[in-house]
Simulated scan of single mutants.
Amino acid sequence: MSFIGLFMQASLLVKLVMLSLLATSVLSWAFIFQRHRALSAAKAEMRRFEDKFWSGVDLSRFYQELSARSHNSGMAALFCAGFKEFMRLRKSANMPPQAIMDGTYRSMRVVLSREVEDMERNLPFLATTGSISPYIGLFGTVWGIMNAFIALGEVQQATLAMVAPGIAEALIATAMGLFAAIPAVIAYNKFSNQVEKLENNYGNFMEEFSAILQRQTAMSAND
């Protein structure tokens, strides 16, 4: 009664259930590793950016340095979008300070939405896997046990040895459903919490950066 042997003895439907759960599990683990790398990189990038930003660097020079890159993400993308829009609106004639700040904040909000959407990529798949995999496995188990008892009813003398392999192969489907679901649920909860923390940090930076730009606008108006 090896796993391969039980799989080969299973009915076609139970085999399809097992194969679909196996494919789902493999895909889930691929997404788990991919999201782990992406969110770890996002946190590292955020720490580097904050260290540089709050070190007292000149904002114009810092913007030029970041703009020279081929791609910016996270807080760097928020900063570039906000500072670019701030400088553009500031050059417009008769532009009220509040309108400048509103435009700058809206520009950063758009980038924030894109960054959060990118960080949440593939998380819905993990949530779906964690929700439905046990039920798919249970369906395979019910179908397998049903077939085992139907076959048992066709013989004159029933023994446990006759029904045990059919029940065992059916229960494997439930085990595979749990094997696919449990890591997906754990990873989804962990990554969702990390995305929420990063989004809060990005939002706090937007508020602090907006306050810095507002002070610059007020100082320019007084001059």
Results as ranks from 00 to 15, higher is better:
S28R: 00
S55D: 15
M146L: 15
F3Q: 15
S113K: 05
R69N: 14
S60C: 04
A42Q: 10
Y188E: 13
A10N: 05
A173V: 14
R61F: 03
N72A: 09
R37M: 06
H71Q: 15
M219R: 09
N72M: 06
A38P: 04
F205W: 07
V195M: 06
L123F: 02
P124D: 08
L89E: 08
L152N: 06
W54D: 10
Q156V: 13
R114E: 14
L178E: 05
A127L: 11
R121H: 06
L13F: 10
A161H: 03
E199V: 07
I186Y: 01
L16G: 07
T128F: 01
F31M: 15
L171K: 00
S67D: 07
A38M: 08
R69T: 12
L12V: 15
L59D: 07
S133Q: 09
A42I: 13
T159P: 12
I32Y: 00
A81W: 02
V155M: 07
A151I: 08
R61A: 13
N147T: 12
M162V: 12
F125R: 13
A23G: 10
Q64H: 04
F86H: 06
K15P: 02
T24H: 01
E199Q: 09
T104M: 14
K15M: 05
L22N: 03
Q194F: 02
S220T: 12
S55W: 00
G166M: 12
S131E: 04
M46L: 15
I136D: 07
A38K: 11
S220R: 11
L59Q: 08
S60A: 08
M162F: 05
D58E: 10
Q214A: 07
S28Q: 01
V110K: 03
T24C: 11
E207C: 08
V110C: 03
S133A: 15
Q64K: 05
E85P: 01
N204M: 11
F79A: 14
Y188H: 14
G82E: 10
S92Y: 00
M108Y: 00
I186G: 00
A168I: 04
D102P: 00
M146D: 09
W54V: 11
K190S: 08
M18F: 01
L178T: 08
F86E: 01
Q64E: 13
S20N: 08
E196N: 09
R48C: 07
R37W: 04
L126R: 06
N193M: 05
F179W: 07
R37S: 04
A180E: 10
Q98N: 10
A187E: 09
C80Y: 04
V185G: 04
M119L: 11
D102C: 00
K15C: 01
N147L: 14
